[in-house]
Write a protein that binds this DNA or RNA. Structure first.
Lengths: 139, 139
DNA sequence: GTATCTGCAAAACATTTGCAATTCT
DNA sequence: AGAATTGCAAATGTTTTGCAGATAC
């Protein structure tokens, strides 16, 4: 089974019809786990799909998110980032080199009363600081 | 001691010179714990300070954040929100009414090795879901 | 009097919207 | 054909920038 077929099946699982663009975008997210911005996705896919537009990428990502196929990250002020997540994980943003790292999702225990009052759909944990490499370069 | 003096002292503690605008903005953040956007701050302070500009609010908030006097929230996609935080706390965004609630900061325990490799300056925890009031209105 | 701070106007971006053309079934 | 999807061009909204005038030390 080739890549396109495999990605198509995943999208179908989420109730998303697999168009060429959707498969391309989802495949990109799966193979480039760099939490790309819309622009990065556009720049990488554009050469192979010359007619692809930013609008379609926005449409597609909004659709993916609404179906739960991807996670939208707001760790960075300027623009949203996207993650075709397997299992939930936390994110670390290095304020020096702007790279985003995946961290294991720590267990967070909420108050019983809050759990009763609020229906929690999603939990995002963002760390900010200096990454290993940038720490070294400071020395 | 009046409010202006008290706020001025706090700003001085952070190494920020207390101008009229800065004191006004910081005081607003302290007394309105609504995680306001730049626009909300502007709308509320503008009548009392007619010459105040959005640019100054941006400048000021950037300065505050760099000195650690406030926290920048990116829980909402559209615009940044600000918090003159006393102690660290988590945030809950109701996707129904768009209100933001303060939650107690749960203890998150990170892997020893990660703690050694990364210098973590800030931890933000965002919950999204349906708040108490909106849950009731669904029934 | 020099450095800092403010604020206008314009620019820069990211994202959304309206709509016509295209594609799929 | 009819519904869903794509993508151009224009609009919107937030944040940034350049710079001149005002303020503080």
């Amino acid at each position: 089974m080739n890549t396109t077929q495999r990605v198509s099946e995943i999208l179908t699982t989420y109730g998303i019809r697999p168009s060429i663009q959707r498969v391309g975008i989802y495949d990109y997210l799966l193979t480039h786990r760099t939490h790309p911005t819309v622009d990065e996705i556009f720049s990488h896919l554009s050469p192979a799909m010359p007619t692809l537009s930013r609008t379609t990428i926005y449409n597609t990502l909004t659709l993916f998110a609404s179906k739960g196929a991807i996670m939208v990250l707001n760790i960075e002020e300027k623009s949203q980032r996207f993650d075709a997540g397997i299992k939930p994980h936390a994110h670390f943003l290095c304020t020096e080199c702007d790279k985003i790292f995946d961290f294991p999702q720590p267990l967070v225990q909420l108050d019983e009363q809050i759990m009763r009052d609020f229906e929690i759909v999603e939990t995002q944990i963002y760390y900010k600081g200096i990454c290993k490499t940038c720490k070294k370069n400071h020395l």
